[in-house]
Nucleic acid binder design. Structure first.
Lengths: 210, 210
DNA sequence: CAGATACTGTCACATTGTGACAGTTGCGTG
DNA sequence: CACGCAACTGTCACAATGTGACAGTATCTG
């Protein structure tokens, strides 16, 4: 495995510098009040160049979450094929977050936490975040469809299940930030997935069937 | 009830004219390719005035959906208090859509259908749509929490249930547009809510089939 | 070294969205 | 009816995001 080449290393350095500068400014001024010009200026780079690394201001903020999401989808794709859908979904999500919380760098964990706060602060960023999740929906639905043995193109159920899984992740993130900032993300995620089946039937005990 | 006054009528006419012009242009050129300037120009109004009626280009496109959503939340709030959560959610959503499909004007139904197509065409509009749903999440979660007898501020489960309900609506809309454009919206919605409990446990009872 | 390739800065531009200000028009009061 | 208030509108100016085109510079490949 040869060295990545000077050009690529430089490019990665610029990208990291932009991310760091962006998060530093977000921390200090908030997401909305920070402009792309400022981020680019902090790295001594033209604003035009910023848009060659990130497609938008939201993109740089959501980049860490996007990597996590990529890992989750990949883990789901590789998951033990005999497990039921809900087990595979819960397992891949929990595993990725657990790995991050135990192996990940401290700066990364701080960044995820910071991102949660930014999401509460900026509706625009929240919208971009939901859109980002939605962009993976197709792929998750495909994997879910495979596992359920149905065709996502003809049956909306895989989409429904995939959407609900994303809901659980989103709700866990909200709970982490708003209700129980002390808990670990993996705990909350596991809780959410465990709640899914139970709550939908609420109050199922002693009700009429059909 | 007295006459609304000339001023208010005029304002409503302008608003309707903007909506009509917007949808006509969207139909002809698509959402992204239509500019606010064109919409305003078609009504002989300054672009500045457009933004006094709608906060954004997305807003004018989503206005019909927003009204539906308002009706659904209202119906949920007034729903028979003894029904279980899932029944109340399904019932209020289905009722509103059913009422629209039987009593609503033809132009309205065409507009909902057109809006679905626009959502598929424009990621920006889709993002705005999800944000719009998310804006009601707080309120829906509050109503769900009341019905479940728990406090949404301390327990994330009402949020989870509310999110999932919105997922079901969204998925029904997708299915309507993509898989079964012939079906009625109320049919599909009822189907989605009926699927919720069953699919989440899939295949909890017995075996996965391969 | 030499050409192909990638990266960057500069310039110009379209679009969305907002604030300030002034002119006009409908509405209620005397 | 005349008056003033409040709402509505247009114009101007402006900030910010995002894109296309072009030229110059650095890197990589042969």
């Amino acid at each position: 495995m040869t060295s990545p080449g000077l050009r690529e290393r430089k490019r990665q350095r610029t990208r990291d510098a932009l991310t760091d500068a962006a998060y530093a400014l977000f921390e200090r001024k908030g997401f909305d009040a920070t402009t792309v010009d400022e981020i680019a200026g902090a790295v001594e780079v033209s604003p035009r160049t910023f848009f060659r690394y990130f497609t938008s201001k939201e993109d740089v903020a959501l980049a860490p979450a996007d990597e996590q999401l990529t890992r989750m989808v990949q883990t789901l794709a590789d998951w033990k094929p005999d497990d039921p859908v809900i087990t595979a979904l819960k397992g891949s999500v929990v595993d990725v977050v657990t790995a991050c919380e135990s192996d990940g760098a401290e700066v990364d964990r701080a960044r995820y936490r910071r991102l949660q706060a930014l999401l509460l602060e900026s509706p625009a960023l929240m919208a971009a975040c939901r859109q980002q999740g939605n962009a993976r929906l197709e792929e998750v639905a495909r994997l879910v469809g495979l596992r359920m043995g149905v065709e996502p193109a003809a049956d909306p159920r895989p989409y429904l299940v995939a959407s609900i899984a994303l809901c659980a992740v989103q709700t866990a993130a909200d709970a982490w930030q708003q209700h129980r900032p002390g808990a670990t993300g993996s705990e909350l995620l596991a809780e959410m997935f465990d709640l899914l089946a139970a709550d939908l039937n609420y109050p199922a005990h002693g009700r009429r069937r059909s």
